Simulated scan of single mutants.
Amino acid sequence: MPADHPENTRPATVRRVPLNLFGMAFGIAGLAVTWLTTARYGHAPLWAGRALLAVSAVVWAITVVRYARYALSVRGAFAADLTDPVAAPFASLAVITPMLPAAQGLHAYDSRAGTIVFDVFLVLTVLFGGWLTGQWIYGSLNLDQLHPGYFLPTVAGGLVAAAGAAAVGQRTLGYAMLGLGLICWFILGSMILARLFFRPALPPALYPTLAIEVAPAAVATVAYLSLRGPHVDVFAAILAGYGVLMVLAQLRLLPAFLRLRFAPSFWAFTFSWAAVATGVVHWTQILRPPGYLIYTYAALSAVTLLIAGIAARTVLAAFSGGGVRTGPPHTSTALAEEH
């Protein structure tokens, strides 16, 4: 191992903080949006969603502090993370996540402060998404390193920003961000599916990222309805059609998911399925089919139990010293070896 490798310069008391840990705050914020959406239709307490947003903000802050301590203590760690072809996309969650508490929470108490914080992180999200896109063009990528986490910087970033812009009253900006997210989804989605269809299977620790495949259509639906208002038109129906296909595809993946051992990568399930649940709440409340409240509460309960279970397992692993591991510091297979 070279003398200047980050592993060789790591103090004994500093543990590696993998970038996918930012998925914890992102998943909790996604659950908060599901609760807030249900509350705005009059079927859940508003305080529950806002409390979850506060929890997500606290978890985000703790993760930022932990990662900053690690990155400042280990020479070259930050640069290595941002150029790692497998891990780098997860870094975008550090700037995407705060848009949700700002637009959906802080804005309700102080509209000016909420808008400013939201806009700051929107700009950071776009800048980082642009930098990563340039890095992928400039750098040397192997198709087998591509995984659904590549949706995060631009697709998730753009669509979350679109919904947030609608919440703070910046509709034109919201449509611009919707365009960014949708076009990147169409381009990256075709490449990611081609890799998944025709290349060797993902490493086991990256299997949970397959859940991200359900997210783009669901988050696009939430963003579109946030901008256009709560009514279903042709484009919303088109998004729903593809979304249903991706949800059904997950059923075939269940055997692989059930064989996995718990790891931080399980947080990839959380925001993805929270977005699906939020989309279900919107659709059932807009169309109001027979038994629509049953569907609403079933979606809310299922995603709450899923995320609560992953959170409980994470806490248990942290206190027991097992399960949540820190793998190799900076290699193109770092996440794959965390498991």
Rank of each mutant, 00 (worst) to 15 (best):
T125K: 05
P85S: 12
A108R: 10
G279C: 03
R69F: 06
M191C: 06
A167M: 11
A223G: 08
A317C: 15
L124P: 13
T83K: 15
G321L: 10
P255Y: 06
F186K: 00
G164N: 09
F22I: 01
L173M: 08
T270R: 02
A61L: 15
A217S: 04
V280A: 12
Y175E: 14
L305R: 13
W131L: 07
T278Q: 08
G27F: 07
R228N: 12
L227P: 04
L182I: 15
L316V: 13
L93D: 03
P11V: 01
A94K: 01
H282F: 14
A334M: 11
A88W: 06
I238R: 00
F198T: 15
I116Y: 11
T9Y: 04
V280W: 04
A220Y: 08
Y41H: 12
V64A: 06
P153C: 05
R195F: 09
G149W: 12
L253G: 03
I96Y: 05
S265K: 02
A318C: 10
A54K: 01
N142E: 14
F319S: 10
G27C: 05
W47S: 15
L122P: 04
A218H: 03
A25M: 01
Y292N: 10
R313A: 11
A256V: 08
G169W: 11
V315C: 03
T83D: 04
P45F: 14
F78M: 09
R75G: 06
I137C: 07
T209Y: 03
L106E: 04
A166Y: 10
F257T: 01
D233P: 02
V59S: 09
R313N: 08
A94F: 12
V222E: 01
V219T: 15
R112K: 12
N8I: 05
V280D: 00
A217F: 00
A302W: 14
V324W: 09
Q250L: 09
F269W: 13
A71S: 09
P216C: 11
R50P: 02
A167K: 05
A217D: 00
R40M: 05
